[in-house]
Amino acid sequence: MTFAIDARGLEKVYKGNVAALAGVDLDVKAGDIFALLGPNGAGKTTLMRILTTQFKPTSGEAHIFDLDVVRDGAEVRKVIGYVPQETSVWSDINGYENLLIYAKIYGLPSRSRKDVIHDMLESMGLRAPAEHLVKTYSGGMVRKLEIACAMLIRPKILFLDEPTLGLDPAARIAVWEKLVSFKEEFGTTVFFSTHYMDEANAYSDEVAIINTGRMVTSGTADELKHSLRGELIKFSLSDHRVDEHTLGRIRGLEPVKSVVVTDSTLNVTVEDAETALPCVMDALRSEGIPVERITTTKPTLEDVFLWYAGTTRAPGAASSIGRVEGKAGGTRRE
């Protein structure tokens, strides 16, 4: 298996002893779309800037397709594309000129330069505005142009720092369609950071969460959601009290992880709500407890994020029990 990114023990201490990264390990498979999540100041941008050879880690090492980011920086830069968070195109020239200048800086052979640029404009849907000054572009168009510039050299891996920040939903979808098409067409690995959980959920093959300079968890979006605390079934019981015997019985059911009663609501945490629901219902019915209403809540990636990286309690988690389970999940990984 080739790893697009392979990092071990990355640390970065800025001047004034500010530790931005405190020992980061990371494996990204070639051809994957990899989402890096984390609160502001968690170290996402620092990690990305080290991986793109902008500065050196204080300690630890990282490889991009087996090239060392410190020792083989020049070689690394030949296989990566990078779209920083901030605008990285010149606004006082037009879209075509931006691509032309970057093509020249990147050293694209002059024979194929025009064709590559035109293909890129076409595929990014920027053909029509190519002759317009970039300062007249919308946010989505600027981002697309930046991605086009980064893709000129057909990089093996594309780094994007919050690629859809500030874009409207339609522009976000358009950007992601392109990124997914690069992955499918050229096998481009895509490594991106974001605050949009829905994007990580929908487009990434794998997700990692970084907090205070450490990786707190990683896996597929589904794995992370399952790692959190199973799913929650809420039974609204019309003014009925649940006695200890019934509670004991439900707790004893095989798929049930925990049970909490609040007022007239019975909160049951299970691994999988669809399969657990019938047997919990059976138990309630045989105890003669009428159920008024049932709601099931599946944890979202947002819950996962808040759990691992936020100070807020996971929303919908069954009070303290869910928290203990989540913590256990967290420590298990370490």
Binding site: Q54, R77, Y82, S88, W90
Partner: peptide, 15 residues
């Protein structure tokens, strides 16, 4: 420094 251009140039395959 505050725009991405400098960063992008640093990551370009050029000395």
């Amino acid at each position: 420094r505050d725009t991405g251009i400098l960063k992008k140039l640093l990551v370009a395959p050029a000395p």
